[in-house]
Amino acid sequence: MSKNSIGTIFRIFLIFLSLVSFWLVTLAIFYLVISLIFSIEFSFKTYFILFSCFIIFRMFYPKNVFI
Rank of each mutant, 00 (worst) to 15 (best):
M59H: 00
Y31Q: 09
I67W: 08
F54G: 08
F13M: 14
S52A: 12
L36W: 12
Y61H: 13
I29A: 09
T26I: 13
C53H: 12
L19H: 13
M1P: 05
I37H: 12
L50F: 11
N64A: 11
L50H: 05
I40E: 08
L32I: 11
F16W: 12
L32W: 08
V20M: 08
R11M: 05
F57E: 01
F30D: 07
L19N: 15
S2E: 14
W23H: 13
V20Y: 06
F13H: 14
I40P: 01
L24G: 01
F44S: 03
R58W: 05
L24K: 02
Y31W: 12
S18H: 04
I6W: 10
S52M: 09
I29T: 09
V65S: 09
S39E: 15
L24P: 00
L19V: 14
L32T: 06
I56D: 01
L17Y: 08
I6V: 15
I49F: 09
L32D: 03
V65N: 04
S52L: 14
I67Y: 09
F38R: 15
F42M: 07
I9R: 05
K45A: 10
F10Q: 13
S2V: 05
I29N: 08
V20W: 08
N4T: 13
M59L: 07
L27W: 00
S52P: 03
S39Q: 15
I12F: 11
M1W: 10
F48H: 06
L27C: 05
F44D: 02
F16T: 12
S2H: 12
I34V: 05
F38T: 13
V20C: 09
S43M: 04
I67Q: 12
V25D: 03
L17A: 14
L50K: 03
F13N: 13
V33Q: 05
N4W: 11
M1Q: 11
F22R: 10
I67S: 12
K63P: 00
I34C: 02
F66Q: 02
F44K: 01
I37L: 15
L24T: 06
E41P: 04
V65L: 06
R58S: 14
F22T: 15
